[in-house]
Amino acid sequence: MVTADLLDARTVVEGVVDPEMPMLTLADLGVVRGVETAGDGTVVVTITPTYSGCPALEEMRADLRRKLHAAGHDRVDVRTTFSPPWSTDWISDAGRRKLAEAGVAPPAHLGPRAVGPVPLTLVAPSRAVACPLCGAPDTEETSRFGPTACTALRRCRSCAEPFEHVKEI
């Protein structure tokens, strides 16, 4: 049975923001995998990292504990799970809108991954990433790796502004 308490815990959990992309809540990012109450009343939150080495993970865990304590949940256990692996497809539509509004290009939808060996990509994919600042479609990748594990760096050929892109994974 879902109690009011659990609903409240879920609301708190889903409202915690990502430490590296604070325009997104953890719910927008799609990393919350479960909020449950154990027999002894402990709120058990399960989240999944975006990347194996994501340095924000421990801060997310600390923030979840802090916010749940503040909401009156004394016993909190935050667990992480690796499986199934996070995909940018799990970023919500609201999250994609918030990214774009903050000047970060949202990821394209990948769909299910093909089974078998991963093909090598020798030229940057031609997938169009529109400039989140001026809207022009003509942009180029300047670096596949950006200031956070989730982002690549791009530049708009039209307005010449650099911007971040949440790269598809």
Binding site: P49, F82, S83, P84, P85, L120, T121
Partner: peptide, 26 residues
């Protein structure tokens, strides 16, 4: 299950690493 879970994430990450090295090799 741990090896399978680590591998599931690693595949996505390593594909980026390999592309990076291959593109620089070219």
């Amino acid at each position: 299950p741990v090896l399978a879970a680590v591998a599931g994430k690693a595949v996505k990450e390593l594909a980026y690493h390999r592309d990076y090295a291959a593109q620089w090799t070219l």
